[in-house]
Nucleic acid binder design. Structure first.
Lengths: 337, 337
DNA sequence: GTGAAAGCGCTAACAC
DNA sequence: GTGTTAGCGCTTTCAC
């Protein structure tokens, strides 16, 4: 129960009408200079600020963005959030956060919860479960209700909206190429996102690079891992099943670091005997020993772009075509390549 | 610009008055059963939901909690956020996030931004800069304006409000004791939070444990590190300056892992020659090699407790005494002790 | 130069 | 059983 000063109270204290006070605070030309000064002085004294709910109701806009994040413990998403918050604040927007925890039900619920006039639009990355089970009606429904959505990273081709993605294909394509140019002969890909759309693109980038490279002798080796508890055992098996692997590309850093550890336990020298490239410029990659080479997704910029995109969508009356922005990735060469 | 159905539109379509519709939706005993059915059917068809802003304005409560986080890239804070979001949702609350990025100005701004009727109260952890410079008036001002605050982890004794903390003293006290009982003779503490209140408590826990232990021969060794870029060099120096160190306790896992690495480079076997204990049950601690023993702050539970505390504060009329809840810590013994 | 009144969407006390 | 009215805090048009 906050005890804000309202226009009403100011008006009463000043012996003026509410509308005069309102205008005076806006330096309206209609109002006498002296009155303006009197009003503003009192407003300042009481630290008056217009009630946001009243403004929202009046203007039919909340200046608030709903953000739905699949997993806040993931460094990448945290960093996107940092970008979103920064850019939103710069534009006078607040952000309401919901966490889907990668569950479809929670995502759906969050969407419905916030589409009661709480926000002007959404920025979200699709929950793992949603993508696996190919749901998308809930998104389209929300859009039809008049809430624009901007999707980032994990997007759906079945939803017509603005998107911000990285070029997942190009990311692994370039990384694979880098390994090939270093003379690696047998490169494996560990995919922890094989059930996501981006997983397919990352796999394609890898296989395509191998295909295009002259004289590459081996088949593509793609090892999917879904169960977190099986990282160690699955990766350990790689070294048994595939002899002479001399490079490993991964889709996240937990698996990359695990691979690093397993390789070392198997007596490999890094990067002499085997190269490892992770995905995402997070703390783990900077703390491993040796320091992990990795693919930087420029998460902060993704967040920023998503906000820009949503705000310009909110600003316009007529619906211009939806666009998908691609944020470039960088290969960060550290000590494991 | 969302296009929600309003009571007005429903009323018009049904040829009823707004208030009848409103009551019908609430199954009011005043309204005829048939009317109720008609109204609810149409409401469902149009997916009617009361506008949140209108409700907030009417009820003078937003059912929204403002959350101010110092650093979202920190695993601990992300996990607290997870707990906050979960518990808030369970109670029908939304959360608006602001990130202080450990800056006083940003924290102040966030507080002012949200105290315009956007939220019912705040949950926050104090920015590093704010604590270092000992600001607290902004908190007290907000409280005076009628917004209850619940502080977690980094709290201020100069602000009279509900708090949720871990027993930082006990955490390091117990960890140090554990090392002593294992027969460690020369234990060092690396403190990355020496400019925070919790830093002092953690240091005290460590020194107190040493003092109480019979026959401990060495002085306390406390190494403060503030500059992130100097982790490696500072920690490396420890091994030069202090011979025979056989255990290191730290206040975060980045320094613990760095210590681990430096110890290994110096030829120490872990945990045979030297024990290392970190702080916080994050990914880093589980991925290091060997796996880091660490102090678990039960972050999720802190978030949950903070929400419970705020909600019960909001519910009551009379002001009961503020309380500080202490969440227990656990020593997670893994492979470095 | 100032104020009254309507309206954003909703609820609830009070008619009828 | 249904409708009218006032009011939450604000802006803005229209009177005076």
């Amino acid at each position: 129960m906050n005890n804000h000063v309202t226009l009403k109270q100011l008006a009463k204290e000043l012996g003026l009408s509410i509308s005069t006070v309102s205008k005076a605070l806006k330096n309206s030309y209609e109002i006498n200079d002296k009155t303006i000064l009197r009003v503003q002085a009192l407003a300042k004294k009481h630290n008056y600020r217009p009630n946001r709910m009243a403004l929202s109701l009046k203007n039919n806009q909340t200046k608030t963005i709903g953000v739905i994040i699949p997993n806040i413990l993931n460094y990448f998403f945290s960093k996107v959030l940092l970008g979103i918050e920064d850019e939103a604040n710069k534009n006078g927007y607040q952000i309401i956060i919901c966490l889907s925890n990668n569950k479809y039900e929670k995502e759906l619920q969050s969407l419905e919860l916030l589409s009661d006039g709480s926000v002007d639009g959404f920025i979200l990355s699709i929950a793992r479960e949603t993508q696996r089970e190919k749901h998308h009606n809930h998104f389209n429904k929300i859009i039809k209700e008049g809430y624009p959505i901007v999707m980032f990273d994990r997007v759906s081709e079945n939803v017509n909206c603005d998107k911000v993605v990285i070029d997942d294909f190009e990311a692994t394509f370039n990384a694979t190429n880098y390994l090939l140019k270093q003379g690696r002969k047998k490169i494996a890909l560990i995919s922890t996102v094989s059930n996501l759309d981006i997983g397919k693109q990352r796999t394609d980038g890898y296989t395509e690079a191998l295909k295009k490279y002259q004289n590459y002798q081996n088949d593509a080796i793609v090892i999917p891992i879904t169960d977190k508890s099986k990282y160690e055992s699955t990766i350990s098996d790689i070294f048994k099943e595939h002899k002479n692997i001399d490079a490993i590309l991964t889709t996240n850093n937990v698996s990359a670091v695990t691979a690093l550890k397993m390789a070392q336990l198997n007596g490999y020298k890094i990067p002499k005997d085997i190269s490892v490239i992770g995905f995402s410029d997070d703390q783990i990659s900077r703390l491993s020993h040796p320091k992990l080479s990795t693919i930087d997704q420029n998460a902060f910029e993704m967040g920023k772009k998503a906000v820009e995109s949503l705000i310009s969508r909110l600003a316009e009356k007529s619906t211009t075509a939806f666009k998908t922005q691609v944020v470039k990735t960088d290969l960060l060469v550290r000590e494991t390549t």
